[in-house]
Design a protein around this nucleic acid. Structure first.
Lengths: 223, 223
DNA sequence: GGCGCGCATTGATTTAAGTCAACCGGGTCC
DNA sequence: GGACCCGGTTGACTTAAATCAATGCGCGCC
């Protein structure tokens, strides 16, 4: 773990609650490692012993239906945690985790971290805050899935990816399109058609994984 | 608040972490009141100042789409909390709350409770545990919405309502059917048709809000 | 180069669920 | 009693999205 990594981890919202000494202690209980493209971190149902922080790369969290098809529940990017809530459900990961590209991760030991939580109210507050945000995100997700059309979800997703103040406004899709489709709860074909339609209306231009927005406001009011 | 109420509240998982003295103090900051059928507790977007515990009755938590249609996010029954995660999102309720029948509630003051959390690690642990369960529930919900058919969701819901070891196995729908439909993300007509179909296959019998299961195992393997 | 493979796109078709409309039975109110 | 409303059911029809199938394209590999 180089100094940039440590900086990223330390500045992540959660651990900012720790004193220098506590942070050092966390490091002694933390593992750092790299997974290669498509490697699996844990399977749905595996005993949950750690939670994770992404240093670089992308992690895909999925559910699999009995029928075999999979639904991407979340895509985790550098600077974010995942599976930290599982720590309290005592048991098993409710999703499986796989990386989409070479990905470097920090793993934090649940047992040790629970001990730390007992002695640090600030840390508790921060963890509760992140969990609460996650809940809010999931509620929004359900809202989207039940009250919005596929096209609206696509537009919402694109706008969400849009960084602040770029001109011309554009996004780069960093994950394969079929993964985005699953993330949005639609089929790849449907995603393709939605993008084609938006292109037809000259609201966006698509060049491979690069999407240029011609009229952000118009898109906003469609979502 | 009579002694049965106090017992229910005290035995609810969350507050069991409190000493007798702490519990008494919580009571001094807690309000108890009754809402009549269809009364609104808070609106989506209202500033969140309290969270709640249901003593009796049923609370409906909803989102409203721009189009005006609503999606029931959750139905909260006696012995359970709601809106406790909102406490950390600083701000506003992400759903609106309305009661389906005369309902008695305990309201707990966010500010005071946050203070209590700072001084009581056990309480933190319990709250994190309930939040984590909520997350798990929401993940399952998304799974259901994206990977299962409407019929499967109906069956799953019915089985979930089924109490342990009743013979003959049956459930009583305590909320109007159109509310259940919205809860499941389908239209009332669809719910009606699914039930009719199950009835046609002699898997269940329906008499108004009473549903008798003729073959629980067959239903289980359909869900 | 030629071959195969995976991903994306496009078209044709199917299907699950939504929409629209009619009807029924139970409750309430005049 | 009759008029009304509300919730649920059922039927006819529409529609959004899934499915199936064909094609194209980039890429690695022998």
């Amino acid at each position: 773990m180089d100094s940039a990594d440590i900086k990223l981890l330390k500045e992540g919202y959660l651990l900012a609650a720790l004193s220098h000494q506590e942070f050092e202690e966390v490091l002694t209980h933390a593992g750092v490692f790299t997974l290669m493209q498509n490697e699996c971190l844990f399977d749905q149902g595996d005993p949950a012993t750690h939670f994770f922080f992404v240093l670089s790369g992308t992690v895909k969290l999925c559910r699999i239906a009995p029928s075999g098809e999979e639904k991407v529940m979340d895509l985790v990017r550098p600077g974010h945690y995942f599976a930290e809530a599982v720590m309290f459900m005592g048991g098993r990961y409710p999703v499986y985790a796989r990386v989409l590209e070479p990905t470097r991760l920090v793993e934090l030991d649940n047992k040790h971290f629970l001990g730390l939580l007992r002695s640090n109210a600030d840390l508790c507050m921060r963890l509760m805050s992140t969990m609460s945000q996650r809940i809010h995100g999931l509620v929004n997700e359900i809202d989207n899935l039940t009250l919005q059309s596929g096209a609206q979800r696509v537009i919402g997703y694109l706008l969400q990816q849009l960084p602040e103040g770029t001109a011309p406004p554009s996004v780069r899709l960093t994950v394969p399109k079929h993964v985005i489709a699953s993330r949005l709860g639609i089929q790849p074909e449907t995603l393709s058609r939605v993008l084609a339609k938006l292109r037809g209306k000259h609201l966006i231009d698509v060049h491979d994984d690069q999407i240029v927005f011609n009229d952000v406001d118009a898109l906003r009011c469609l979502s």
